[in-house]
Amino acid sequence: MMREKAWFFAMVFSYPVLTMRLDSRTRHEIRESARRFFGADVYLFGSRTDDAKRGGDIDLYIEAPMSAAEAVRSRIAMLGHLYSRIGERKIDLVVNSGGGERPIFREARQHGEKL
């Protein structure tokens, strides 16, 4: 009984660590660059939030109302900045700039974790 309880608590308290498959520095850099280039929060979704699928792409989602041209420029600026800061990684940065709803936006909002 005691052993089961200990196991239960170990699972519960390690959960956030296990589900965030990015080190804290990487998370910090991503958060800061989203703020700098979009003035917005950033959400991690997809395989990096799933402990069973390690080491996939880094799927990021940002909501920031702006023109398509601004969104594209900010997206490239943020990716370039991240490559300089954390090295080139497979980053899939999805930007919802207000140009219409897409299924991936809903998925990111439902399953994403704010960094």
Partner: peptide
């Protein structure tokens, strides 16, 4: 600019 080169790389991947 090294940072601009990273942006060009990001565009290439895009």
């Amino acid at each position: 600019s090294a940072e601009r080169w990273s942006q060009i790389r990001a565009m290439r991947n895009t």
